[in-house]
Simulated scan of single mutants.
Amino acid sequence: MRLPAVLLASLFLGACVMQQTYDREHQLNQQLESELQSEQVQIQQLKDRLRITIEDSILYPSGRADLSREGRALLDKLAPTLQQATDHRIEVEGYTDDVPVGHHLKGKYKTNWELSSARAAGVVEYLQRKGIDPSRMTAAGHGQYQPEGDNSTASGRAENRRIDIDLVPIYTQN
Rank of each mutant, 00 (worst) to 15 (best):
Q19W: 10
Q19C: 03
T21V: 08
Y22M: 10
R24K: 13
E25L: 13
H26C: 07
H26W: 13
Q27C: 08
Q30Y: 12
S34E: 14
E35Q: 15
S38V: 05
E39I: 10
Q40I: 04
V41T: 00
Q42S: 14
Q42H: 12
I43L: 13
Q44M: 13
Q44D: 10
K47S: 13
K47C: 03
D48I: 02
R49D: 02
L50F: 07
I52F: 04
T53S: 12
I54K: 01
I54M: 09
D56S: 14
S62K: 15
R64S: 08
R64E: 14
S68K: 11
L75K: 07
L75Q: 02
L78Y: 10
L78H: 09
L78P: 05
A79E: 08
A79C: 09
P80D: 14
L82Q: 08
Q83D: 08
Q84R: 15
A85T: 05
A85W: 10
R89W: 11
R89S: 07
R89V: 05
I90V: 14
G94F: 01
G94M: 06
T96V: 01
T96A: 00
V101C: 04
H103Q: 08
H104Y: 11
H104K: 06
L105H: 06
L105E: 14
L105K: 07
L105M: 15
G107A: 11
K110C: 03
K110N: 10
T111A: 01
T111P: 03
W113A: 04
E114N: 03
L115P: 00
A120H: 00
V124C: 05
Y126H: 01
Y126K: 01
L127K: 03
Q128H: 14
R129A: 09
G131F: 13
G131I: 11
S135W: 09
S135D: 11
S135V: 08
T138F: 03
A139D: 01
A140P: 00
A140V: 05
G143T: 03
Y145S: 06
P147R: 04
D150Y: 13
